[in-house]
Structure formats: C-alpha cells, structure tokens
C-alpha cells in the first residue's frame, strides 16, 4: 500500500466527501420532513431526477444557474404536491404512489429532454455553473479542495434551518406531533392534513433542489445516469440518522466519505480491484447499521393515512 496520509490527502478526502454528499443532503432533508410528518416518500429519487433535468435545462436556456436551481425546486414541488394529494387526501398506499413517482419522474425528464434537445437524452452543458464558495480563482494549493460549491454551503444552512424548525419552533412541534399521533394533534386544533401537505410539498422541493445540485454544480448537464441511486441513499440516510435532520446530514456525510475513500484509494497503486472498492460505501453502511444503529425508531404514524375522526 503506497498511500501517504498527509494534509493533502485529508483535504482531498474532505473536498470529495462534501461534493458527493451535497445532493444527498438536500434529498435527505426532504425525506426527513416528509417522514416525520407521517408520509413515506419513496419517490425522492424520481423527484430528484425531474429536478436535475429542470435545473440543467433552465440553466442552459436562461444562462442563470440560480434561476435553474429555483425552477428545479418548483418542479420537484409539483411532484411533491401530487404525492401529497394521493397520500393525504386520497389516502392511497404511499409506497406504491412513491414508486409511481420514481417511474413518472425519470420518464418525464427523459421525455422532455428528447423534446427540447433534438431527441437526445442528455441536455447541453450549462454555460454558467453554480459558483464556488471562494470564487473561480480559488485557494492556493491543496486548500483549493475546500473551495466547495455554494450548494454545499446551502445544504449546511438548510440543515441548520431544519434543526431550528424541528426543535426550536412551535410549528416543528406540531409537525412531529402529526407524525407521532395525528389524532392527538388533531384534538389540539392542529390541521393534520395541512401540515402533511406542506411537508410533502417541501419534500419534493428539496429533492428537486438536490437533483439540481448534481446537474448545476457537480456535472454541468443532465444525463440519464445523473441521478442514479442518490435518492434511495438519501432515504437510507434518514433511517440511518433516526429520522432527525442532523442525523440525516451526518449519515450523508458518512456516505460521501465512503465514496471519497473509494476515489482516493482507487487513485493509488492499490491492489484491491476497483469493483470491490466501489462496494465499500454500501458494505460500510450495512456494517454500521449492524453494529451501532439497532432497532430503528420511525415516527409512529409514518406511512399511515389519517382519517379525521377515526379511533386509534
């Protein structure tokens, strides 16, 4: 093994970790707010894909990455709203509905891509990517690894806001009550349906932003493989983080770190085959789950539609 662990390696690892985890952090915060309010949203992956396409397409046509970023959030929110309608108003099976979102989202993204980009399943690269934290000139030497995308900073700010909403505001308390015991929340005058509608729509919005964080910051365009599993990993990260915003954030970082490790180790003259290295993040997740997490503690009413007036 010929890897020298020095400050350069550490900074490189840190930079790649933050880069990989950013889209997942947005999606994970989306997943956490939906699940804590009591609605399973397994359609995060599909909502990310539609966001990734919208972000790249609007970014390309308008030339403004931020406009693309916002539109990506709105596109995700539309899908979130559909999911909310099905799972809150219609009380449909949330898992089935989420799977439908995962089919419709990528289907729509690729369909629209073919319509707008002459039959191609990938968009043209955007001219302006989302700026870096320290500008394009960057920092000196290996410190430049810390010149992360602005989206990475936004993801951290988002997480802090989420923690504040969850544990520092009355609305956050309502939100958690709705997910734990909707009937009790209802008797206190909390509008369960309204809270869930808002949460699931925000969930879609954040997933859409996560998708755009991929196609406007990490790679400059949308392609069919732009979102390949990040949404599912984000859902896993939320379960892993025990349905808390900070837990989800840390789980995403851990996952990004495992991927960064793969990249850094793969670069050296390492004897382990690259395919085995690529398994590392997933194997690591299972091992950590076995060793540390134990019984997951989901919100009690997660996945259960609420019928006003029903007896629990």
């Amino acid at each position: 093994m010929s890897i020298n662990i020095n400050s350069d390696t550490v900074l490189l690892l840190l930079g790649i970790t933050l880069m990989y985890s950013t889209p997942m952090v947005f999606a994970a915060q989306g997943s956490v707010i939906s699940e804590v309010s009591g609605v399973v949203n397994i359609g995060i992956e599909g909502m990310m894909t539609i966001g990734a396409f919208t972000g790249a397409a609007v970014g390309y046509f308008s030339g403004s990455p931020w406009l693309g970023f916002i539109c990506a959030g709105l596109a995700g929110a539309v899908f979130g709203l559909i999911h909310a309608f099905a799972s809150v108003t219609c009380k449909a099976d949330q898992t089935v509905c989420g799977i439908a979102m995962n089919l419709i989202g990528p289907g729509f993204a690729l369909f629209l891509s073919r319509v707008f980009f002459d039959g191609a399943t990938q968009t043209h690269p955007v001219t302006n990517k989302i700026p870096k934290l320290f500008g394009s000139s960057g920092l000196e030497g290996s410190l430049n690894n810390l010149n992360v995308d602005m989206t990475t900073v936004l993801a951290l700010i988002l997480t802090i806001i989420m923690i504040w909403i969850f544990y520092g505001t009355t609305w956050g308390l309502h939100l958690r009550a709705v997910g734990e015991h909707p009937a009790a929340a209802d008797t206190l005058g909390i509008n369960v349906y309204k809270v869930r509608y808002i949460c699931v729509t925000i969930s879609g919005l954040l997933a859409g932003l996560g998708g755009a964080a991929m196609t406007l910051a990490i790679v400059p365009q949308f392609m069919p493989t732009a979102i390949s599993g990040q949404g599912f990993i984000a859902i896993a990260a939320v379960i892993f983080g025990k349905w808390t915003p900070h837990g989800g954030y840390l789980a995403c970082l851990l996952f990004g770190f495992a991927q960064a490790l793969t990249v850094v180790l793969g670069g050296g003259s390492f004897t382990v085959p690259s395919e085995i290295l690529a398994m590392l993040p997933y194997v690591l997740t299972i091992i950590i789950l076995i060793l540390f997490v134990g019984r997951a503690s989901a919100p009690k009413a997660n996945g259960v539609p609420y019928n006003k007036g029903s007896r629990v």
Binding site: L289, V293, G294
Partner: peptide
C-alpha cells in the same frame, strides 16, 4: 436487528 428491509435491500 430490526434493520428496515428497504435500506439493507438498497445497499
């Protein structure tokens, strides 16, 4: 261990 089948399945 009570590990959700969805998360281990995805991994």
């Amino acid at each position: 261990l009570g590990i959700h089948e969805v998360i281990s399945g995805i991994m």
